[in-house]
Design a protein around this nucleic acid. Sequence first.
DNA 1: TCTTGGATATGAAACTTTTCATATCATCGG
DNA 2: CCGATGATATGAAAAGTTTCATATCCAAGA
Lengths: 327, 327
Amino acid sequence: MKKNAPTMKDVAQEAGVALGTVSKVFNGIAVGDSYRLRVETAAKKLGYEVNQYARGLRAGTTYTVALILPNVDHPFFALLAQHVCTALMQRGYRMLLYVTAASPEAERECVGMVRQNKADGVIALTYNQLEAPADVPFVSIDRCLGPNIPCVASDNYAGGRLAAERLLALGCTRLAFLRIGSSHLSETDKRGDGFESLCRARQVPCCTMRLNDDAGEEAQFRRFFQDHLQDGRLDIDGIFCATDLLALWIRRILADLGLRVPEDVQIVGFDGIQQLGSSAYYCSTIVQPAQKIAETCVDLLLAKDRSNIPALVCLPVRYAPGGTTRE
Amino acid sequence: MKKNAPTMKDVAQEAGVALGTVSKVFNGIAVGDSYRLRVETAAKKLGYEVNQYARGLRAGTTYTVALILPNVDHPFFALLAQHVCTALMQRGYRMLLYVTAASPEAERECVGMVRQNKADGVIALTYNQLEAPADVPFVSIDRCLGPNIPCVASDNYAGGRLAAERLLALGCTRLAFLRIGSSHLSETDKRGDGFESLCRARQVPCCTMRLNDDAGEEAQFRRFFQDHLQDGRLDIDGIFCATDLLALWIRRILADLGLRVPEDVQIVGFDGIQQLGSSAYYCSTIVQPAQKIAETCVDLLLAKDRSNIPALVCLPVRYAPGGTTRE
DNA sequence: TCTTGGATATGAAACTTTTCATATCATCGG
DNA sequence: CCGATGATATGAAAAGTTTCATATCCAAGA
């Protein structure tokens, strides 16, 4: 921090106006034009900039929002972080980023850190159910945390149905839903619900594999596919993976087993990350509207009128086909 | 921000001690044990937490560092952001993230925003040469900004040499270096220098393609390869791409042209992003030590003794081979 | 001309912390 | 037993802003 930075007092003196007038100018409050001009030129001359800490102390508003994410090297989370950051900056706010590695303690700690006075609001995507503070505006992504905490998510249920619909439209007749990790009661769980619901409605066989994330994931998947392999042919021809990253993984396992995508099996992922869109993979995906999610979170958080904030906002997803030309 | 949060005064009253004593307790200054205990229990009872804004105002230290990046949905930048965030949190700091979209104005604006008083220090990776403020600790990544601004980077030159060495070791005899965008005078330019230097030393032919990033990139690449294509065979058998993302792109163009990787052409990228490591691509990469870079930046920024800060820190890279089994 | 009203500039108070000069206390050497 | 010493608690001042009650000004209406 600069040592002897010019203060409002300096600007006021330079401009020959009162302290309060300078304050008004920098807060966009009505001030006579001649005054405004004098203040602005004086401020420019002195190189004055508002001290956010003094402002935060006095006014209680810091123009800072905290974003809490499990990590940011997952492509979807990175996208989210970027869009939240941009949306905030457009509105004159800055973003404090916390990464938790999905550990419950870290998540609680992060919420604690922003709890009292380190941010005007919090946007969080947590893997664990935690108690959101009632005393700071809070928006949750992908998980309902409580009656007064709005939750923003993709329409995961519709996304799951869409995935099934598209696989069927592609001619698949025996579907599977694959996910990793035990249910953590988030909105994302509804992907599977939607998928299975459509399968039931169309009376299409659908098997589900929920994988523990604690041990030997890859081996479990290999066994799963070997169980479904008969005479070198898979008795599954359409797979819906709960995330794109999982889709990439599955795709590689299938390749190792000598199965071709999309000729032998069709794969649909979920997230809409760039890599999967690459035609080299031939996987389709259900695209989450990352930018829309980010902007919705920011708008909800910064809403002046906090009287009727919705409990859950589901945003529409879309289907993006994979590449169609074989390498 | 919480409305009527307990203050130090409340804690002091509750504990029956002076204000200054409470302050000392929260700043780790020597205090009698009985006093410390009383303060701590009182603080816990009241749910008191230090108000960072009052502290920032009075003490001038905010325990906040700004990270300025062109974007965060590039896998390498995401990795960097994550490691910087973690390193800062471990040291009791928090991270303010700014994304600039690489625009010169946005970069200058971001530096301006943190200039006076919004952060204890700045870590920046900028695409444009800009004037770093002298009044706030500043560390630059991948670009030397001035005599008093330390720059942290991978050893790009050695990385370029390593790439050439490995391609030759794989049996390649006619190499090419591909990069996108005009030189922007950053450390990353040295990748090409190192690569070409080793080619010269070994007397291996090496052509370089620098691509303007303003128009028809893909078409330019296609033409480049078509110019080098004779009777369906490429007169290049080893390609070094300046970044992994470019490598992925090139790989796809080659596939479209009917060329196989790695049978017909070997590709080495640079960055060490996860996706390229995936065996589905058969591209090798020069891995940048993202975590080490992040930690070095943070340590340099937070160094108490600012008397002998190095001007440039080059960190060692390593070679990571691509997948070896064909799908 | 005098009053009234609206608009806007003024300056002191408040926000919560850290810092620093002063006050207090116990200990120790003489 | 007394004065000096070192350690540590105390409380006022200061940091730069916003807010609010008050003061000022100018124009309009009587």
